[in-house]
Amino acid sequence: METIVYSGVTLEIPSEICQDISLLFEIISPDTWNNHLTDEHREMLMGFLPEFPHNDLEEKTRTLEMFFMDENFRYGTPLRIFHEQLCKGFFNPEISKMRAIHKKIMYREYRYRQKQYFHHTLEEVLVRRKRVLDIVSN
């Protein structure tokens, strides 16, 4: 089982989904939407779609269609991105804790490299300035 902890929701999902993405597409599908959810559910879930300034309902319906039909949104589709994150343990509390630590360490290394870079650049600028001043004073 894969554990999902996300914004107050805890779920256990069979890990076989990671081997076969089609299982996910069957669960999150137009069929599920149309035949396994009530009107109240659908209305509640529609609230998780983006708000549009004009033709809100029409655009929301179109968005839902794109969402189910696996159309590209942003360097991938929402479902594929979710699948990838799920299988990498993104939603697993243990793994995400380790990931946060890893990220912090990488960030520190980055700051260190930045400092080195600026130190090096400063030296370079000072040497150049000296050269220019020498030329001027001669």
Binding site: Y6, S7, V9, L37, F48, L49, F82
Partner: peptide, 8 residues
């Protein structure tokens, strides 16, 4: 879209 997926 994560809240949509997870809540569904």
């Amino acid at each position: 879209y994560l809240p949509l997926i997870v809540n569904m």
